[in-house]
C-alpha cells in the first residue's frame, strides 16, 4: 500500500453512510468476533476494544465526510498483572488498526527496556531508533515500560530512550502506535514522573485477573489446541490446583496455567512410558488423569 494513501485522506461525501457496510468493509466485526471466540474472559477488555474500534470507525467516517481532519491519537496503555493477555490483545489491536486503515502493516514489535536502552554513552539512541524503524507501520509494544525510568540514577540512559519515544509518538502518529504495558500501580507512578507519556496516551485498558472459572476454561482451550483433554476426575483436580496455585507467590494468570499444563503433559507421558507392556489406545494418549495433576508440588 503506498505510504501516503494508507491513511484515508478526507474527501467530502454528501450522501448518508451505511454504517453496517462500513463495519463490514473494515472487517472489524469479524475481528471482534474472533477476539470473543478465542480469548476466554477479559469481558471489560473486550468491551473497551469494541468501544475503541467503534470510535475509530466513526472517526474514519467523519473524516470521509470532511468533518475532522486530524488523525486520532492511538497510543495506548495496557495495565494488569502478568499473564492477563496484554500481549495477545496488543497483537489483535494491531490487526484491528490495520483493518481500519490506521496502520499500514499491522505487525507487532514487542520489546522491554533492554531492547531500547544501551550500556554506554551513544549506545541508546541507535538502539531505540533501530527498534522504532522495525516497528514503523505497526505496533511497538513496550512491556513493563516503567523500567525505562530510573529516578534513582540521574544519568540513566533510559531517559534518552524516553525522549526519542516521546518525540516519535508525537511526530509520527500515522507511522506507528505505541502500547505501554505493565502493572497498574507502577504504570501510574511512571506517568506521574513522565507526564509527557500520559498526555500522548489516548486509551487505557485495564486487564483484570482471570476468575477461577476462566482459568479452567483457558486450560481446557489450551489442551484442546494440543489434542488433549481432562478426564472428569482430572478436571476436578485441576479446579483444586487453580485454587492452590493462586494462593502461592508469583502467580501469573494464563502464563502459570500454560506452564502447569506443560508439566502435566510431562507427567502424563512419563506415566505412559513407565508401563511399557500395556497396549496404548488413542484414548490413553489424549486423556489427562487426575494423578497427572495431583503429583504437582502445589499439592505437597
Amino acid at each position: 500500500m503506498p505510504l501516503e494513501d494508507a491513511i484515508d485522506t478526507p474527501e467530502a461525501i454528501a450522501g448518508p453512510i451505511d454504517l453496517r457496510a462500513e463495519f463490514a468493509a473494515a472487517g472489524i466485526e469479524e475481528m471482534l468476533a474472533e477476539l470473543d471466540r478465542e480469548l476466554i474472559g477479559l469481558a471489560p477488555v473486550k468491551t473497551r476494544i469494541r468501544e475503541i474500534a467503534s470510535l475509530l470507525l466513526i472517526e474514519r467516517i467523519r473524516r470521509k465526510m470532511g468533518l475532522s481532519g486530524a488523525l486520532p491519537t492511538l497510543h495506548m496503555c495496557f495495565t494488569g498483572n502478568p499473564g492477563t493477555g496484554k500481549t495477545t490483545v496488543a497483537l489483535r489491536m494491531a490487526g484491528i488498526l490495520h483493518r481500519l486503515g490506521l496502520l499500514r502493516r499491522g505487525h507487532l514489535v514487542s520489546v522491554t527496556r533492554d531492547d531500547l536502552v544501551g550500556q554506554y554513552i551513544g549506545h541508546t539512541a541507535p538502539k531505540t531508533k533501530e527498534i522504532l524503524k522495525k516497528a514503523m507501520g505497526g505496533v511497538l509494544f513496550i512491556d513493563e515500560a516503567y523500567y525505562l525510568y530510573r529516578p534513582e540514577n540521574e544519568r540513566d540512559y533510559g531517559q534518552e530512550a524516553i525522549e526519542i519515544l516521546l518525540q516519535v509518538m508525537e511526530s509520527q502518529r500515522d507511522d506507528l502506535v505505541v502500547i505501554l504495558a505493565g502493572y497498574g500501580e507502577r504504570m501510574d507512578r511512571f506517568f506521574d514522573s513522565n507526564p509527557g507519556f500520559r498526555s500522548r496516551i489516548a486509551h487505557h485498558i485495564d486487564f483484570p485477573d482471570y476468575g477461577d472459572d476462566e482459568l479452567l476454561a483457558l486450560a481446557e482451550l489450551m489442551l484442546q489446541g494440543q489434542n488433549y483433554r481432562f478426564k472428569p476426575e482430572a478436571r476436578d483436580a485441576f479446579v483444586r490446583y487453580i485454587a492452590r496455585r493462586k494462593a502461592q507467590p508469583r502467580f501469573a494468570n494464563a502464563r502459570s496455567i500454560r506452564n502447569a499444563l506443560d508439566r502435566v503433559r510431562l507427567r502424563h507421558a512419563n506415566r505412559l512410558v513407565s508401563d511399557p507392556d500395556r497396549l496404548l489406545s488413542a484414548e490413553d494418549v489424549v486423556s489427562i488423569e487426575a494423578s497427572d495433576i495431583l503429583a504437582s508440588r502445589v499439592f505437597a
Binding site: L3, R105, L132, K133, K134, M136, G138
Partner: peptide, 14 residues
C-alpha cells in the same frame, strides 16, 4: 544497510 524493515517509514526517518 537497513535489513528486515517492514515499512518505508523507518528508512524515511533515517
Amino acid at each position: 544497510p537497513m535489513f528486515d524493515l517492514p515499512d518505508a517509514a523507518g528508512v524515511m526517518m533515517e
